[in-house]
Design a protein around this nucleic acid. Structure first.
Lengths: 248, 248
DNA sequence: AAGCGGCATTGATGCAAATCAAACCGTGGC
DNA sequence: GCCACGGTTTGATTTGCATCAATGCCGCTT
């Protein structure tokens, strides 16, 4: 059974259909990971009527920092980078959204970050106003959103430790271990490789290094037989090393 | 009218009574800033019965990372540092809780950080289980908790930019401006000085520098007539400089 | 097959902040 | 008044990562 479902470089419709079949939530294969798992069939069908499947090309922008929050998103396929930029061009990527991740938890009127498609991205899209009315009437949905938000807060704290207190080597190791865990959760089972659909510059901007340092550290790890670099990702050769050097 | 209410070095009861008068929420002067502002008088009185005023000495620990969440806290006086520690002693302070700030938004069973009193701290303390039952029955309270959580998430993103992409000078400037804003909000009006009740090491662990660098940068700013160092804080001499060098 | 454009890698050098090490300063105890 | 102590400042030196600068590699186009 093939569910290797590569990201950026697969263009047949069938590959995508594995991930979202039309607009029917019943066939959504990230539902158990997403906000929607809090909903019963009736609620789901209401929300389904309110939602549409949206597709974004690689490198396109879902929304920009300061934009009005018109729609909110449940990513069903692909990878989105969440970016804060400074006026002089410095960027900090605050997170990567993977299938199952929700964009628009905050109920604020404006986005506090920019979202850009790293790969082709598919997302279940809701009108913000409708979703908000709905969540106001559904306390268990609000509670689930709150749980998602506080979980993200905990991840944000992890990330602060990484940015503020880890060495370049520890940052890379921690990032790779986290990506492995996240993909395993999304895919439902462990893969031989760790997908890295984002470029080196994105990794650098996520962990607070330069592209050169990211490249150097990863290639040094390969020379040291800790991992091997493969197309679209890396493969752990010495998992024990990563257990030891990654944070939590 | 005196509401200068200093922090660590004032020991007369009257000074504290400005901030919390016994256990009566009606006299709580951080209520408008806190979670409790979402509640009507009846709900407030119920919650009041469920709460107690707690006092923590300077340097004492409210709770440790991984501890069971037995109680949750609404800080009413003083400053709490929120700490993540690595096994080798490196620390990252993920935030400082000031009066009005709430500890225990997450509804998780265990704390994801340690909370230590920087100054003497007073807090309104609730049994977690009781508060949770209550919030389950009060959707508008849950919504307010969610708003607090997503606001914190946005602050966490700000902090990631600071940690990952700012220079030492920018980090200090941004930190000082943020503290000024937060104190102004808590005090209800602008003070001449910016209180820094936390030590240099805490500032360093908050913004991802060493104590020596923090000291050097602040003292350099003083030599450059950007600020003056005063007991328990600093005073801006050249506010325009800070507007320019601090992030947002 | 040659040329191009967009990453990624590698090397040489620079520099901001860390580290190592002392001195300083205010406070409290005796 | 003196000393001890905890926190802060200052100075000298090191270093980890950034910066600057090629070069390499792969997929696309023509």
């Amino acid at each position: 059974m093939d569910n290797s479902g590569t990201f950026a470089h697969q263009h047949d419709g069938a590959g995508c259909a594995q991930h979202v079949r039309g607009d029917d939530c019943r066939f959504c294969n990230v539902r158990h990971l997403s906000i929607c798992a809090a909903l019963d069939p009736e609620e789901l069908s209401f929300l389904e009527d309110m939602s549409g499947d949206a597709i974004y090309a690689e490198k396109s922008t879902l929304f920009r920092e300061e934009d009005d929050v018109v729609s909110i998103f449940n990513v069903t396929f692909g990878v989105v980078r969440l970016v804060r930029s400074l006026s002089d061009g410095r960027r900090q990527i605050t997170g990567f959204a993977l299938p199952g991740d929700f964009l628009g938890l905050s109920l604020e009127k404006n986005w506090s970050f920019t979202a850009e498609a790293v790969t082709e991205v598919r997302a279940c899209r809701f009108k913000r106003s409708i979703f908000e009315d709905f969540s106001d009437r559904k306390p268990h949905l609000m509670k689930r959103m709150h749980e998602f938000a506080t979980h993200e807060l905990s991840l944000a704290q992890d990330h602060m430790v990484l940015l503020g207190r880890l060495t370049a080597e520890e940052k890379i190791a921690t990032f790779l271990v986290a990506m492995k865990r996240r993909w395993t959760r999304v895919e439902g089972h462990e893969l031989g490789l760790i997908r890295l659909p984002m470029g080196r510059q994105d990794i650098a901007d996520y962990i607070g290094l330069t592209i050169e340092t990211v490249s150097r550290v990863i290639n040094q790890m390969q020379r040291d037989r800790k991992l091997v670099i493969v197309p679209d990702g890396i493969r752990f050769v010495d998992p024990a090393y990563f257990d030891e050097h990654a944070l939590r």
